[in-house]
Each structure stands twice: as C-alpha cells, then as structure tokens.
C-alpha cells in the first residue's frame, strides 16, 4: 500500500528511468548553483568597484530576486508538480511582506 507506482509496468525499467531523471535534475541543480555563485560574485564586484548608488541598489536587488527564484524553484523543488498550494501561500506571504516593507520605507518618516 505504501508504494504506489502508477507508471510501473516493469519495475526495473521504471527504476532506471527514475535514476536517470534524478541524475538529470542534479545536473540542472549544479548549473543553478553555478549561476547563483556567478550572480553573487557580480553583486559583490559591483559594490567593490564603487559604481553609483543608483545603479547598485536596483542591480543587486534584481540579482537577489533572481537568485531566490532559482533557490525556490530548483533547490526547493517548487517547479515540481503538487506545489500549487505551496506556491499560493508563498506568494501570499511575499505579497504581505512586500506591503510591509513598502510601508516601512515610505510612510515612516518621523
């Protein structure tokens, strides 16, 4: 009862197929990781090089957001099936959080 394999005609074939799929996914994750490192290095380099504040702030924020999307969708598997509710609630959290941050940088000025 514990192991329901909807697609398993021949267990050995399914097993090898799954191993292969996992290995492919792993490759994707290593690529993701490389890009995350790359983004991080660029962000630090931009600050280290001393560009204008008006360039750096949006630039590093954009890199951070892209990195977090990678992290969520590849490392935390949000791109997989069965994550609809997780996505709904994460995005709701992001929305509420964004409103809070927006408030605190706009209408707290005393």
């Amino acid at each position: 009862m514990a192991n329901l394999q909807p697609n398993s005609g021949d267990p050995k074939v399914t097993y090898e197929y799954r191993r292969k799929k996992h290995a492919e996914e792993m490759r994707m994750q290593v690529i993701t990781f490389t890009m995350m490192i790359f983004f991080t290095v660029i962000a630090f380099a931009a600050v280290g090089a001393g560009f204008s504040k008006w360039f750096i702030v949006p630039f590093v924020l954009l890199l951070a957001i892209v990195q977090v999307i990678f992290q969520l969708y590849y490392f935390m598997h949000m791109s997989h099936k069965g994550h609809a509710e997780a996505q709904l609630f994460m995005y709701s959290g992001v929305l509420v959080g964004f409103l809070t941050v927006l408030t605190f940088v706009t209408i707290i000025w005393w």
Binding site: H83, A86, F89, G93, V94, G97, T100, V101, F104, V105
Partner: peptide
C-alpha cells in the same frame, strides 16, 4: 509537507517584517 510550506509562508512575512524594521 504542506504544513511546512505554509509555515515557510508565515516565516516569509516574519522576515519581511524584520527587514522592514531594519530599513526604517
């Protein structure tokens, strides 16, 4: 699995609140 994702949704708001305070 589901409950933990929801918890992370709540944690998102928690850290956003801390970030907001830091920025202010």
């Amino acid at each position: 699995f589901l409950g933990f994702w929801f918890f992370l949704g709540g944690e998102t708001v928690l850290f956003a609140s801390l970030f907001a305070t830091y920025l202010a």
